[in-house]
Amino acid sequence: MKYFKETLYDAICQEFRVDKMYFEQKTDHQHLMIFHNAMLGRVMTLDGIVQTTEADEFMYHEMLTHVPILAHGAVKKLLIIGGGDGGILREVLKHDAIDVTQVEIDKAVIDMAVEYLPKHSDSAYDNPRANIIIDDGMAFVKDCSEKFDVIIVDGTDPIGPGEVLFTEDFYAHCKNCLNEDGVIVTQNGVPFLQIEEVKNTHQRLGQHFTDATFYTVAVPTYYGGLMTLAWASNNVELRQVSLEILEQRFKEAKLNTRYYNPAIHLASFALPQYIVNQLD
C-alpha cells in the first residue's frame, strides 16, 4: 500500500503517504496498520480510520488524562478501558500517587504497540504501578467490585470493536465502579462530522450522571475540527475548579506537557454553539 485513504466519510477523505509499512495485520473483520509518514511519524490505523500518530498523539492523550485527574485533585485509583497503545497509561503514570488498572481486550494490541509504537507507552507497561488486565471492558466493569476515582475510556470508533463502549449499559456499569466524587471521560468523535455521537452519548450518560457534558481538543489527524471528549460525574463542582487551584495542582504534579495547561483545561469546557445545540 503506497497511500492510505481514510474511509470515515463518503464525500471527503484524508490521504497519507505510506513511507514505510512497519506492521499490517488482518484478523477476522479487522485491519490494523502501522506505517511511517514523513510529516506525522508513525501512524496507526484500524479499519481504515486513523487511530493515533506520533506527531499529534500528545494532544489527545494529555487532554483525556490530565483534565479529569487535575479536576478531581486527589485521584488514587484510576481505570483505563482500552488504550492499548499505552499513551494514556504513560500520561497517568506521570502522577506519582495514582495506581492504574488498565483493561484492554486484546493483548496483541499492547504487544504490537510496544514493539511498533514504542514512544506511545514509553515503557509504561513495565511500571509496577500499572495493573494490566486482558479482558472485555464491558465484562470488567459489569463484575467489578472495586471503586475508582477516574475512568478513562480510550476506545475506537462506535462502528467496530469499540461499539459496546458507547452503550448506556456500559455507562451504567461504569457508574457503579466510580466513587461518589468520581468522573468518567470518553473519546467521543469529531462532532462537526459526527454530530449523532454527541447527541447519543449525552443522552446516554445523562441517564446515569447529574453532570454530563463535553470538553474539546483539536487533534489535527482526527480530521474535522474539534474533537469532543465526554465528561460525566455526579459532582458538578469538578469542572468548576478555579484556575488558581488547577495551577497549584499542575505545579505540584510537576507535569511536563505540550498541550495541557490549566488555562486550556478550563477553556476546553467552553463549547461552540453547534455542539451546545445538541445538548438540550
Binding site: 474511509t7 466519510y9 463518503d10 473483520h29 479499519d47 481504515g48 462502528i159 467496530g160
Partner: peptide, 11 residues
Amino acid sequence: IRDALRFGSTT
C-alpha cells in the same frame, strides 16, 4: 451496513 462501514465502503 455496519460491516461495510467498518470495511470503509461508504456508498
